[in-house]
Design a binder for these strands. Structure first.
Lengths: 213, 213
DNA sequence: CTCCTTGATGACCTATGGGTCAGCAATTAT
DNA sequence: ATAATTGCTGACCCATAGGTCATCAAGGAG
């Protein structure tokens, strides 16, 4: 029956390898992951991997690049296109997005950036410009819209839109480091945080309620 | 003149090595730091290092342990002993403390925990119980005191005191990863964040002011 | 079917770095 | 002084893992 020992699939290889690498890096971190591990996971030989990526570091960069841009781009377009009020958007679509992050593979990339970022300045540069700056700009415009149409007071949130994202980062890191010792309910945590911030910046308080229904 | 090639200083060695290791790990991360580097920094031979620490991993744990406990212990006692109102404490001593963290060596340890934590479960366990849980408990009691004496509304902050610490973590990580690309004014960022949270939970608003003077 | 291109393999090379240990020399005891 | 003690050294060992390359074989062309 001569089952062939391998197939030639030039087109699919990079993505397969990249996905395997993401999983491997996620488990062990960059330095502790052996190139051989990645290859094995991808069902491929080590030699082939070096045919598509010049070094282990190149591979690392490729991993980061290929898994984030799509997501942030989607968020950005959504914010610009929405017809919801700023508050409704933050309580609705934004919150949904924020809650998903700590459960998605993106959290792994976040950790990788924190852990190995310093050694790859060009990578963090790219990441900042393509992902972080884009996301923050979109958020800031949303908040400014809220201020202009009287939903929100003028607050430091206009200068630091990061504030509204910080619980996401916190939740990601907490769950990566402490989950086995003390699980954090990331959904409720993020909701509570965003809720408090909104309470702080809203001009009208429809009902003197308890913060975060 | 026979300058001796070395001095015997059994007492001081552990700390010297530990300090050198902190600096080295901070620069390159755990895996990428060679034991030889640490030894050289400490002005000591590699062999000596292994006289005081059984493995590289032991050394890593010792580093973490020796640089945090004191700080958190101090904070804890201060919170319990203070006579300030909850709000004044948060706006005063707590904010001072929070602002210092992103500039202190502690930020390095934070990164190390994030980066290498998963591989050292017993270490994260110890860290959670000795540092995180202690700190959060103190914070929670402070907030509950504020609620009981009418300063604060009942909010999710009682359940998630982490919320008020999250900007610190965010600031630390931002500055470690993105400082060279886009510097964050951590002091003002943290102040703005805490200010907003306080605005959200306070019962009385003395003046309808602009958030965070 | 046969040849040829090239995707793919995995044994191999080599540098690196964690960890050891026989011996040395600073200090202390006598 | 001399000897005994032990903090300290650095050459060495060896497993590991990044990276290479001679060779193979899948799949298309003629």
């Amino acid at each position: 029956m001569a089952k062939p020992r391998f197939r030639r699939r030039k087109e699919d290889r990079p993505q397969e390898i990249t996905e395997a690498a993401l999983a491997a890096f996620a488990e062990k971190g960059y330095a502790a992951t052996r190139v051989t591990d990645v290859a094995r996971r991808a069902g491929v030989s080590k030699g082939l991997l070096y045919l598509y990526f010049r070094t282990k570091e190149e591979l690392f960069k490729a991993v980061i690049k290929s898994f984030i841009s799509p997501q942030i781009e989607a968020l950005r377009r959504e914010i610009e296109g929405t017809r919801l009020s700023a508050e409704d958007y933050l309580r609705g679509p934004f919150l949904d997005f924020a809650k998903k992050v700590p459960k998605s593979p993106a959290r792994i990339l976040l950790r990788l950036m924190v852990a190995e970022g310093q050694k790859h300045p060009d990578l963090t540069g790219w990441y900042h410009e393509q992902v972080v700056a884009q996301g923050l700009a979109a958020l800031r415009s949303l908040i400014e819209r809220g201020v202009k149409n009287g939903e929100f007071r003028r607050t430091a949130l206009e200068e630091f839109p990061q504030i509204i994202v910080s619980p996401v980062l916190f939740a990601v890191i907490w769950s990566l480091v402490f989950d086995r010792h003390n699980k954090l309910e990331t959904d409720r945590f993020i909701e509570a945080h965003v809720g408090l911030i909104l309470d702080a910046i809203k001009t009208k308080h429809p009902e003197k309620g308890a913060g975060t229904a």
